[in-house]
Design a binder for these strands. Structure first.
Lengths: 153, 153
DNA sequence: CTTTACGTTCAGTATTGACAGAACGTTCAG
DNA sequence: CTGAACGTTCTGTCAATACTGAACGTAAAG
């Protein structure tokens, strides 16, 4: 029976989201939408599959939509909202996380201003962060563009 | 007065850690250890500066030590434990976060196994994740090595 | 026009986890 | 040997938040 393996996958996604500081339910919903067949599921379907309330599924789908990981699809049934994984969603997702990473870039600058008249040895603590995120901020987007093109083309 | 700007910096670090799904206190302690002079502070000092309890500072320093962001230093005073920012800590930190990112790589593989007999169109949802993290996992470490050498050498 | 099914939003509940306080062990000073 | 200062660990408490249930609005069906 494949059911338990599917459940396991969904649980892993849940755990992943938790470690990223995101709601577990978002991981579970995304987990379903990554392995389900057909790929589009209605909100009611998701409630059924995950044994969760309409409200939590509704708010979760909204979150995932804002994150660019899922999208609404034309519904085959009137009055039902269908969702599916959004192609290219992973790149958007990582771009957002990257943005979070490099926000430390600004904080490091803020700190360096505080230490502007201090010994370079003291400033190195923050200089290190500043330099690293400069490199990452510069290089990673092009790296992601490469991935994007590979998939899109 | 520079006090308020320092407080602002510490609060920004706190917020940053929160967004990364880490304890705020860890951000605050690190914030202090990034701008303090002298760079090494005792646990008692940190309690004083942050107006926090010994217990929370103690657990937080342990966490930050495990994360490779701070380290204990030889104490100038007996029976007191001194901490400072650990040179190269930022790279270690990002390496750990990267590890978290690419753990999705394994989850994607797990999912692809579930869909091994399915249509490629269905598998593309996970294939996209798998490919992206492959690239990141391959390229980012060398990028970080570059940063490390720049600073270390 | 009425009823029903669906999704959204709001208020309430439960759970998680961050932090404080207390108790303990250890080490230095007197 | 006694006492005090320090750090760690354990337990309890409080706050944040994820999730549920109920009320509401809406649109289709009969």
């Amino acid at each position: 029976m494949r059911y338990y393996e599917q459940q396991h996958f969904i649980e892993d996604m849940s755990l992943y989201f938790e470690q990223m500081g995101l709601p577990r339910m978002a991981g579970r919903v995304l987990g379903v939408l990554l392995i389900c067949n057909p790929p589009a599921q209605s909100l009611t379907d998701l409630c059924e599959i995950l044994q969760a309330s309409k409200s939590s599924i509704s708010t979760t789908t909204r979150l995932l939509t804002e994150m660019g990981l899922i999208e609404r699809t034309p519904s085959p049934v009137p009055r039902q909202v269908y969702f599916q994984f959004k192609p290219g969603g992973w790149v958007v997702f990582i771009r957002q996380r990257l943005k979070l990473w490099v926000s430390l870039h600004n904080i490091a600058e803020e700190g360096l201003e505080l230490l502007h008249d201090q010994d370079p040895e003291l400033r190195s603590r923050l200089q290190e962060a500043h330099d690293m995120f400069s490199v990452i901020e510069e290089e990673l987007p092009t790296l992601l563009d490469r991935v994007e093109k590979k998939h899109g083309g």
